[in-house]
């Protein structure tokens, strides 16, 4: 009986202490983590729109849209978050589109767990730069092992077609949703 009480009390005390330690860690770390996430997003927005000065966050039914403005107050375009499944895990990215909603300004990959050395190449400048000035209608498509010919095409990373096509289809889906929602307004 004494043994049982000792067992239960040790486990309870260890559990309580561990819980308390974790609460403190969480209280300390959580604001910092949220800050990091916010500054990461801001960085991506300013990288896509180098002339940007301010942005307003707008949430339209699950879609997070940022209205990015110049110093003069002129609308530069919209930035939005898009995410979906890649080859190995979630791909999360920020994309910018011009006010007419027809031309992409650029994309930045925020998170991806693709295969290092292959799929992870989607985070490289070479791949991302292809999205600058791409037309969004008709839908973006990709070509393999040759240079893109049409204004809505990009070239997939060699050996990582799945990751490249994932980026394209995640983008297409989100652009479609954003277009509909923004035109309704």
């Amino acid at each position: 009986m004494r043994k049982t009480i000792q067992m239960i009390s040790v486990l309870t005390i260890v559990g309580l202490v561990s819980g308390a330690v974790l609460v403190f860690t969480y209280k300390y770390a959580n604001p910092l983590i949220l800050d990091n996430q916010k500054s990461e997003m801001e960085e991506a927005i300013f990288k896509i729109f180098p002339k940007a000065d301010t942005y307003d966050k707008d949430i339209i039914e699950d879609n997070v849209v940022f209205r990015v403005k110049e110093k003069s107050g002129k609308l530069l375009g919209y930035a939005f978050l898009a995410q979906g499944n890649g080859y190995q895990g979630v791909i999360k990215m920020m994309a910018g589109i011009e006010p007419d909603l027809e031309t992409l300004v650029g994309i930045e990959i925020l998170e991806s767990q693709e295969t290092p050395g292959l799929g992870q190449e989607i985070t490289e400048e070479e791949f991302k730069a292809q999205f600058k000035g791409l037309t969004t209608s008709p839908e973006i498509t990709y070509v393999k092992n040759k240079s893109p010919e049409r204004p809505n095409e990009i070239q997939a990373v060699t050996g990582a077609t799945v990751s490249s096509s994932a980026v394209v289809s995640i983008l297409n889906e989100k652009i479609k949703a954003i277009k509909e929602k923004l035109k309704e307004q």
Partner: peptide, 26 residues
Amino acid sequence: PPQVRIATFTVIIATFVTCADYFLKA
């Protein structure tokens, strides 16, 4: 007590791992 040794160890380890994880994230 030896019977709950492993359980106690695991809880302690998991606690420190969570701390390390939050520290890295922050």
